[in-house]
Design a protein around this nucleic acid. Structure first.
Lengths: 357, 357
DNA sequence: GTTAGGGTTGCATGCGTATGCAAGCGCCGG
DNA sequence: CCGGCGCTTGCATACGCATGCAACCCTAAC
């Protein structure tokens, strides 16, 4: 059994008694071709099992209709959700997804080179930082780049994120309002914009309102690291009575350690707040109070923006921030007031509305 | 700002003072070219930021070095793990991954057509069934197809799976040995080979050993469906004292419902056994006894087989079954004997060794 | 009857790279 | 000194499709 050759447009043309151009036009929406010819071509194509070769097409059109997508940290359930939504969103617009997973913690450069060799129409980097060398390279090649759930220090790269800063501030206010006094913060990846922004929102509000800075540990957005950090934090004599975890994934790790290794009850002995509002965090066992990053709106914004950048290379840099809510569940003691129902969920809205992004 | 043209091999050739062929050879490992020429080309390429165009290359070589990967059910943490391993495995062999997510429950045909247009070197279908029409089409086009965690009724399609049948049998024996008498089975997707095989192993052993068939509900491998099924099962007057859940993802759903809606204690009031041994199921809160499908070995087998099929189209159909273990944790009462330590885990090995696959 | 114009069609070419073939070069043994 | 061989190199072409251009047909308007 040898590898068979695919039928080509020329084969179809011969069978249908038309030129190869006609076959091409028959498969190009909006091309100038008589309905009867199109039908004859379609029939011949069916007989031969012909499908236009996307590779050859891309070579001539100079558009691949492929979008490179980088995603690491699939352990965090936020990202599988994102991938799924992204896949459907891009597919609906006629794009394919070339997926690659950069080695965690490092720049994505080497694999990215492979992806760029495919002349992708755009690049979406989820939870990935971009080396400035590569940013320049994409800029020079005119390849739109979009950071998802990250921003770049180089502000020329567009991004879609949640409200990291506002979320951090709101969580600080929430925890203080509910009477916590020994706060802890569990950072994600140190040089990630999300972790930085969430932390500076959190600490910023505390400082501005005369509260001491929180205890601090680093969990690198990973389960085991977060669990280890939780052990350090909870073993302290001045153990915190509330911990803001950089994301839900780490918060579940902290909950596991707190309950099963320290025998703590949540939220009686320890309050937990996460970020993302996704995955197991919603299950009754965790019932995590968390600032939401709504996947579908974020992905919708991403798809819309990336398509715009592809169609109009002159699209200016944009940083879209998708609105989130502090979803209140059972993992943190509740403040006496400010909780309101919204779309069948309980969310927290501080009474004085002076929180700014 | 207009889209810039990429540098081509001809541009590099001109700058380096060689022919375009020389540039091509400079980037082709093993091609006949003088070291000094290669260096000059490399330098010119560096100056121009040249990278070979993978699209044009694929057109001439008739090999895309792209593998189409279908994956649905990313909610089940098994699959993100698989994706991650697969990505690294394929990348290490120089392949890119064109990912698409078929609409759950239906055949993947429409999107698959788009993927086939890219002349992928092979197709890996994870948790996806293949219509026989499409199987024929791939067969005719000589595109290797590999089913991951599924088998096909058409036995001509190769596959990599876990030990579904043996796992099901072993779990039956395990639950009976630990004194359970009212068993339940929570099926996944009815027409999936995994669910069928696990069930027939489970029920087969029970029948052969004179036990009544289990109560049965369907959870479709989905969290909410499984939760609903659990409610039906646990509300019965003859509520089961042990449930074998078709996978860990459904088992966590059942655990949530049992604890938080029925106030049951696990395993005192209800024993749970899952399948996959992955994700949150390992966390202390669930501590799920589960038959393992080891991701890395399964992916290794997949990558090796798919590469073999690509390199040698004459590779015969193969159905690889990757060995698993019944990993014993806390979600099910333990039998008086048969638990042994293996690689820092507790696994169950029945005393009489008459279990066959 | 003539002409303008819109709708179709085929021809020729280009997209960027790989590769068979033949030519060129230097080196060695006879 | 010459023939032959092996290593490099360039030339020409093919891969499969899209598309500008010109040719063509037909209808409608004059």
């Amino acid at each position: 059994m040898t590898r068979k050759r695919h039928a080509t447009a020329t084969d179809v043309a011969r069978l249908a008694g038309v030129s190869q151009s006609a076959v091409s036009r028959a498969f190009t929406p909006g091309a100038s071709i008589a309905e009867e010819t199109r039908a004859r071509v379609a029939e011949a194509a069916r007989q031969l099992g012909y499908r236009p070769n996307a590779i050859a097409r891309s070579l001539t059109t100079r558009r691949s209709r492929i979008i490179g997508v980088a995603a690491s940290y699939l352990q965090n359930h936020f990202y599988p959700d994102v991938l799924e939504a992204l896949s459907r969103g891009l597919q609906a617009r006629g794009y394919q997804m070339l997926l690659f997973m950069p080695d965690a913690g490092r720049h994505a450069d080497p694999q990215l080179q492979e992806v760029l060799a495919w002349r992708v129409d755009a690049l979406i980097l989820a939870s990935t930082t971009l080396s400035s060398a590569l940013a320049d390279q994409c800029q020079a090649a005119g390849i739109p780049v979009l950071l998802f759930n990250r921003t770049s220090r180089a502000p020329s790269v567009s991004s879609v994120t949640g409200e990291n800063l506002r979320g951090g501030r709101l969580i600080a206010e929430f925890l203080v309002a509910s009477g916590h006094r020994r706060l802890g913060f569990l950072a994600g990846i140190e040089n990630s914009s999300t972790s930085r922004d969430r932390e500076s929102g959190f600490c910023g509000w505390l400082q501005e309102n005369g509260h001491p800075p929180p205890l601090r540990e680093v969990g690198l957005y990973q389960f085991e690291e977060a669990a280890a950090a939780a052990r350090r934090l909870l073993a302290r004599p001045d153990r915190p009575d509330a911990i803001f975890c950089g994301n839900d994934h780490m918060a579940t790790a902290v909950a596991e350690v707190a309950r099963h290794e320290f025998g703590l009850r949540i939220p009686r002995d320890l309050s937990l707040v996460g970020f993302d509002d996704t995955g197991p965090a919603r299950w009754p066992s965790f019932s995590l109070t968390s600032f939401s990053q709504p996947v579908q709106p974020m992905v919708d914004a991403t798809v819309a923006l990336v398509c715009e950048m592809i169609e109009d290379p002159a699209t200016p840099t944009r940083h879209e921030v998708v609105r989130g809510e502090l979803v209140v569940r059972g993992s943190a003691r509740m403040p006496p007031e400010g909780c309101v129902s919204l779309a069948e969920q309980l969310v927290w809205r501080p009474v004085r509305n002076d929180i700014t992004g």
